[in-house]
Write a protein that binds this DNA or RNA. Sequence first.
RNA 1: GCGCCUCUAGCUCAAUUGGUCAGAGCGUCGGACUCUUAAUCCGCAGGUUCUGGGUUCGAGUCCCAGGGGGCGUACCA
Length: 498
Amino acid sequence: MTTPEPDGSAPEDAARVHPDVARAGAFDQPYTYDVDTRAAQIHDRFGDLEPGVETGEVVGVAGRLMLRRVQGKLAFGTLQDSSGQVQLFATAAGTPGFGEFCDLNLGDWIGVRGEVMTTRRGEVSVRVDDWTLLAPTRRPFPDKWHGITDPDTRFRQRYVDLWVTPEARRTFELRSRMVSAIRRFLEDRDYLEVETPVFHPIPGGALARPFETHHQALDAQLYLRIAPELYLKRLVVGGFERVFEIARVFRNEGISTRHNPEFTMLECYEAYADYHTHMALTEELVAHLAEQLCGTTSLSHGGRPLDLSAPWRRATLADLTSERVGEEVSIHTPLDRLRTLCVDHGVPADDSWGPGKLLLELYEKTTEGDLWDPTFVTDYPEEVSPLSRRHRSEPGLVERFEGIVVGRELCNGFSELTDPTVQRERFVEQAGRRDAGDDEAMVVDRDYLRALDYGLPPTVGLGIGIDRLVMLLADVGSIRDVVLFPTLRPEPTDHGAD
RNA sequence: GCGCCUCUAGCUCAAUUGGUCAGAGCGUCGGACUCUUAAUCCGCAGGUUCUGGGUUCGAGUCCCAGGGGGCGUACCA
């Protein structure tokens, strides 16, 4: 049992902290270091040199010492920075503080200045003509070869994971570039990026249980948003004809390989357009991202081929489900028959459900998981789509689509319901369910209805799960591999930092 | 929520059916070494085997409870 320091910092426990902690304590850290070159640039510029060459080019590099090979009066090191690794070459004759250099610990941050050269074996190196300790590691770094495998440690101490797990670093770099590419893609199409509130007085825009919080000064109950949807549509009312937000949203639900309580959604809205427009936008965007980030739309996911190229298959929910269950089903199928089919397929059905909900459940439990190749599932029941506009030719349905890839929902979009009267009816219907105990049902949002009263033009909206898209492109199986600091059970506070 | 699995040194992993088994590699510390590539060689230190009970002559190993984590399932994206 260790005793935490008053400030919560690491206890000075000899078994746990680095043996050289005294050295670290006396360390006088510089405020800056003059870095002019990164590891990858050295390989780019000097990658083709013959062995034993001195370039006359002096560079300043910095990073962590990841590997060290001391050999008497020579020492080799591997320096890693955000771009990659480069070898360091130090000599007793030419490197000031050679002994101290050899005593560096794996994981120490150093700055090095020296001439770029190649060794007799031909490896491009920076000769350590001068060096500075920038920050010592006070804790031992993980095994240089195996790294960390314990998932818990990887997630809780991501700062270590990023150094010792190259795939982790690559995945998060890909995520960053993906978000950046999405912005460019939408901006090129005249979409305006906006930021809407995270605190919502009324949770809305999706069916989910929210996190609750409270504002002291206002003495107001607030909710963390479950979707930015209703605010973005208010902005279309306000005259922003094409808007998007990359929004962190929060849902108070279970955690799994595919669910983190906070996650990131892209939502975008376009006036004067319907759901066909956004199906086209989606497949174009996803194919574009695959090209940009992976170099191709022919990917592999979990060892299985996956082609993201446009166009994607389009099929109605009713047709796909009919195909699966082997008989024609739709929202016009008699309730009894739908209920029987649910039972036959092991789908639990609630007595209060109408045909739309029954059909949706049947589809989700029997069909969705098998849709590996990108598929737009279209025309959902009105009963389960309180914000979507009625289908122009199919009564009881709405103009809604979900993009399913590798059996999982990647996106959801629809022609927006613009009629305040119908929207009010849908809200009231939802509120009734809420009163009946469904704590994921919506509540009436009067201000949103007021906004609709001012007129929402024909509009289409789309939401894409950013985390899941990263999983797809990075070929990883868990959302925790694409979220830097996934939600975990808090560590006990009576142990200090360990 | 529920089910299954898992937890041994800083890290990665070993310990026949419960019987000197608490070990190795890396790292750390000390020493050798002028071209290494997970450098190599010699030596030292390092563990309340997640925690607490129990069974037993004897528990890392079996049982119970608790804790952390993983996977599946449910809700959902």
